[in-house]
Design a protein around this nucleic acid. Sequence first.
DNA 1: TATTGTTATACTCTATAACTATA
DNA 2: TATAGTTATAGAGTATAACAATA
Lengths: 164, 164
Amino acid sequence: MNDEDAAPGLRIPARAGTTFLLAQLGAHAAQRFAERIAELELTPPQTGLLRSVAQRPGQSQQAIAGQLGTTPSRLVGLVDGLEQRGLVERRRNPDDRRNYALYLTEAGRRCMAVLGRAARQHEDAICAGLSETERAQLHALLTRLATGQGLSTLAHPGYSALTD
Amino acid sequence: MNDEDAAPGLRIPARAGTTFLLAQLGAHAAQRFAERIAELELTPPQTGLLRSVAQRPGQSQQAIAGQLGTTPSRLVGLVDGLEQRGLVERRRNPDDRRNYALYLTEAGRRCMAVLGRAARQHEDAICAGLSETERAQLHALLTRLATGQGLSTLAHPGYSALTD
DNA sequence: TATTGTTATACTCTATAACTATA
DNA sequence: TATAGTTATAGAGTATAACAATA
């Protein structure tokens, strides 16, 4: 709802609300990123998992599930897929054989490098039309919004599938 | 993927990418809006439909489906629900009895007014922490991004369910 | 034959709850 | 008994395709 003044008389929104633009652009950016990484045979949730493992190697599946805002059961299939492709490794903890510690393999690290390039291209495609100064401005404003909303760098608010 | 430099050495993202922030904030804003309108017993897709009908009364279901980026079959249930609650009205076209023309009822117009107030409160909650000047800056930057990406005011890029 | 709306069906994604194995 | 991971099941949401009425 961006009808800033949907008063009884029914006004047409001359100005799309900021939150409407945020939701619209956010969904658009996420979808475009999904298309981009589909060429690498990766899905957004897989990408989020890779990112999480890369950032903090050795975490348990439950810890990562908490970080990503999803359930432990959901992680099983995700890790399975990446492990079968040799990107991620499950290592048993000898002290407590109930949990696994997750690590990137060498191929996983290479994959992260490719993903990093894709992310930069994606960023350029989305921000095309803005000058360097404007991009910095936008980034600063969004960061303040995110901080104000209590959003962390890793966790997402439910829509893990759409995060990029 | 916001690891701006996920180079072979595995760098931790010191700076979240702008597109990551966009996707994260967009999902967050959409979710919060969904929670807000849930108190009115409305879902985001229903809200989008109401908005579409309010903006251009008399359109066919297919036309609206096209606008919202969804399928005609999906509109059936959506319109059913709103019609049963007396917010939207199906009128047969006497000239071509195949299609309906959709209109808001008086209750539908009142509902739009309530939604408008909710949208303003939502906007304030999300933008809290930014000054008026900064909000205007952000709005201008997002508008330019949306224009650059070819996003219109009404249509959404697939994620109609998340639009607010 | 083409088009509007509808229904039936299937598919994707995800969470919940039950299960195992370790502790 | 409690916890990590797993499996089985179920639910929400949506699209595709077949169908009926009208043109």
